[in-house]
Write a protein that binds this DNA or RNA. Structure first.
Lengths: 152, 152
DNA sequence: AGGCGATAGATGCAAGTGCATCAAGCTTGA
DNA sequence: TCAAGCTTGATGCACTTGCATCTATCGCCT
């Protein structure tokens, strides 16, 4: 029985800024990728996770956990990535239902090219405006808003 | 024409948190509305602006400026709102192309009911985790990220 | 006035999302 | 061992979004 009351003015303002700024920044990063003829951010998220996972790859449900995408979304996103030759779907030895997704060489290359643009967007959009200390402070505050069960 | 370099680790972390937290919070607020059988957040944003604008209403292009929605998005969102009787489209005297959008009584009522749920979400999701001072600090940091440099 | 580019808003079509549900394989327990 | 239920991943359908383009009107300049 914690929060029954309406939000404080401070909470409303912080929420409003968070909504507006995040939407605006996503939009700009997305625009930059489009400008470069590159796939959307969602593809980067998945390619990034798969690149981190290495040759072992990841199961789709692990991607769901890591990325916050819905199950059906991952399913279709992986289908598109596979159609573009950026990932491979491999059968799993000990589970006939499942599959392992592994990033391909082309996938790594695409991720690299996306990062060249995406990374610059991040540098421009947040790195430019705030000092390292301020960025850390922002990260810390945002970290406190994550939900109980989520870790980094 | 500032940043050419790749982002600092601090910038990357702040960006990642911002992306993840904002997506998660939006999702939760959206879920709460759905749970209550209420329209999505986008409707609230528009109804809120129109309620603030009062009887004078707003032109669609003003809504675009205020909400960051794309033009075609506003156009169709307004069509849905009108179909639901939440807003009225009025002709503009001195501009035959345009229209003025005014919120209806039903629209105000819907907004009120949405706020009951949405406001509680805000209180739960951000008001609960951070003190007023921390919320102000967060708002200030986010404020510095608004209107970041645009490269044309 | 007449022409021309700019602005306001709508819309056809393709692609993505959300929801519900499905099929297949796995696991458990009597 | 086998039925019941869970997990993994795919998919049909309706709706929304994105893109490009269209129509209509406006404002300006000659």
């Amino acid at each position: 029985m914690t929060e029954k009351a309406m939000p404080s003015p401070e909470a409303i303002k912080a929420w409003a800024r968070l909504m507006r700024v995040s939407r605006q920044l996503v939009e700009r990063a997305e625009d930059a990728l489009k400008q470069g003829g590159l796939p959307p951010l969602a593809w980067y998220d998945v390619l990034h996770e798969l690149a981190e996972a290495g040759e072992g790859g990841l199961r789709p449900f692990q991607l769901i956990e890591r990325t916050l995408f819905a199950q059906y979304n991952i399913s279709r996103l992986l289908a598109r990535l596979e159609a573009d030759g950026l990932v491979e779907k491999l059968p799993v030895a000990d589970d006939g239902r499942g599959q392992t997704i592994r990033i391909s060489a082309k996938g790594r290359e695409t991720r690299r090219r996306m990062w060249a643009v995406y990374g610059r967007s991040i540098a421009d959009l947040v790195g430019a405006g705030l000092s390292p200390d301020e960025l850390n402070a922002l990260s810390a505050l945002l970290g406190r808003l994550r939900d109980p069960p989520v870790s980094d």
